[in-house]
Design a protein around this nucleic acid. Sequence first.
DNA 1: CGATTATGCTCTAGCCGTGAACATAAGTCT
DNA 2: AGACTTATGTTCACGGCTAGAGCATAATCG
Lengths: 397, 397
Amino acid sequence: MRAEHEAGATTSGALRAHNRVRLLRAVHDCGASLTRSALTRDLGLARGTASVLVGELAESGLLHEEPAAEHGRGRPTQVPGPHPRGPIALAVDVREDAWEVAACELGGRATVVEVRPHDGTPEGALVPLGAALRARLERLAPRVVGTGVALAGPVRPGGLVDIAHLRWTSVDVPGLLALPGPLVVGNDTAFAGLAEARRGGLRGVAVGLHLHVDFDLGGTLIVDGRPLAGATGVGAEFGHMPLTGGDAPCMCGAYGCWGQEVGTNALLRHLGLAHGGGRGRDHAERLLSAATAGDEAAVRAVRSCAGALGRGVSALVNAHDPEAVTLSGFGVDLHRLALPELMERFERGLMAIRRERPPRIVPSALGWRGSLIGAMESVFDAFLTVDAVDQWRRAHA
Amino acid sequence: MRAEHEAGATTSGALRAHNRVRLLRAVHDCGASLTRSALTRDLGLARGTASVLVGELAESGLLHEEPAAEHGRGRPTQVPGPHPRGPIALAVDVREDAWEVAACELGGRATVVEVRPHDGTPEGALVPLGAALRARLERLAPRVVGTGVALAGPVRPGGLVDIAHLRWTSVDVPGLLALPGPLVVGNDTAFAGLAEARRGGLRGVAVGLHLHVDFDLGGTLIVDGRPLAGATGVGAEFGHMPLTGGDAPCMCGAYGCWGQEVGTNALLRHLGLAHGGGRGRDHAERLLSAATAGDEAAVRAVRSCAGALGRGVSALVNAHDPEAVTLSGFGVDLHRLALPELMERFERGLMAIRRERPPRIVPSALGWRGSLIGAMESVFDAFLTVDAVDQWRRAHA
DNA sequence: CGATTATGCTCTAGCCGTGAACATAAGTCT
DNA sequence: AGACTTATGTTCACGGCTAGAGCATAATCG
């Protein structure tokens, strides 16, 4: 009836498949760092079972064992890691003026293989990207299990994307890319949150909040290691809640949005400078440098953004009670340059019962790479299922 | 690593237990309405497997089969339902001036067995309630699998409850009740949301939003059939986000809270009447009657609340993209009396991309009984697990 | 009243994981 | 250097599970 009832095996045949995926997932999640004996213990398997499973996975080209570097006392164990001809996820981060493609192995190692600037139009960005990806897919032939593409705007069902600051409306991303094979199109903020949940500051956290500051602000709630998707797939839009009391119309079509007060657009507006249209990242970076150096006007602008960030975070913490809050993008800089202002407004906006044990607010360890890593995780999430792994095994028998 | 990896059986022995719980869960969720053959199909089991499972469950007093009312063409099938000596959940709804106890069978049938007024103090309310529950537990002896208690305030770990309008602070509910056996203490709004997800307007919805209007306003996000819990268990606090632009201090310790603008406290304040302190429910009901009859001042107050409700809902819809929004408590009345005002501010606050297919906003079908039903569901959620069911079977061998 | 249809029951075949016994490969002690 | 200790990998018999086929059962339909 509900998804959870479907989970788990029902037949003894499905049991094997289920454990295969569990093992593969564990290898991926730990970054291929755990030894076989540790995995056997963690997953609660008998040594014999683990033996059979690893054997099968190695034979079908999904895993490859190498001797562990450090030895203890007994018989040395092996470390299962990605197979040299194993599955690959292509991850793409599309920014306002360039895109970046990475090839990622099971375990999470990502290698950037291509970076190219573009003109900011849907066709100018996505058609060459599609060609580059198709070329790479052909070269890597049957190894690629999917492509994940991160974009800086809401993604509707069918991969339709709107990016207000680039004037993209209902851009048909899958259509323009024209790729064979599985494709995941996602919001960069949601992907960054996913990355944070799997390999960043929200690892192991039951309920976490991730906020990404760029031109404006986005965010998602992370529950049990994955961002909440929303009914139509359009999550990560915390920036479009009216949390700071304004009522100015926003580019999104609503008004009073929190995202208007936090981000480089807001920074530049504070100083009376031109903003919007996807320009101004360099300008904003200079401004942050000025603030770091102590320039008074810049510092005031940064403090204002940090305060608005803190106020909004308090509201979201009141509502959702997360265990931790991570900040990425320019959020890292706001945290670094104006922590007192951020925390003052954060604490003032908390309910009394939240003040006792407020969540920690931490800058992301993944920096600007979160979106790319999240795109990878999203592809592997689709692959690390009973159906997809079985399909690979049939093809690589 | 994450919860989902733990789900499902890993050994063949656990397979049987897993399928037992799946079957029991399916019977409960459908309200004991499905026939055995329908269940067999829905769960994807073989007829032989279902035969064994139902037999075991009947023998251990968990299920009881009765002939199906309607016959088709072939051999008539049976309907598995609650066993006459089967598990019972006690559900309690504690209101500001009275509490109510219901005994609930597997399948969801709830029978109110006791209602008693109280004086509004923690001891005055909870000590007699504890005595009443202990008496009932003793009478029903080994059948009660747990007690669920709904309260109108945030619940912290350990069952500590704060109810601002009753001046309850850090009330130790489990301590005052002093019950043997499992106890679930929960927020009434979260419970109402759970009920809505299982047996109301959010049934089968992947992402839904439930809002409960009483003195003020609470709400939860429903994901995959369950309300988001929050890290410390304190969810359902959407009322304490600043979504309507105010900045007045709130009883919760924060300021500008949405809940100050929606609810009976807000209604009475609009008319310059005394409010707060848990008094005024009768007054508010008279006021709603007056608005229904067309009294102008009352209508204005209701419209203002409905507008503030709509504005907040738009913000939450922007952020979370739910498939449906349900309203319970006085939210039903606001929906009935001032739908245009509600919808106008709702639609104005939506992002453009949300306007295409906005979620439906529907009044709850469960009315004021949601909290009680949710408390029951919460108890059965704890029981319908491999461990708890196995324990019952060992005791009832 | 026999044919049809859907369901329940029983039994065998095939698969899976456990756990014990054995094999292996190190470190460690004398 | 050689024997002992320790931890891990491998193999295999065993018990348990579900699927599926075949048969029994009980209703409706013509």
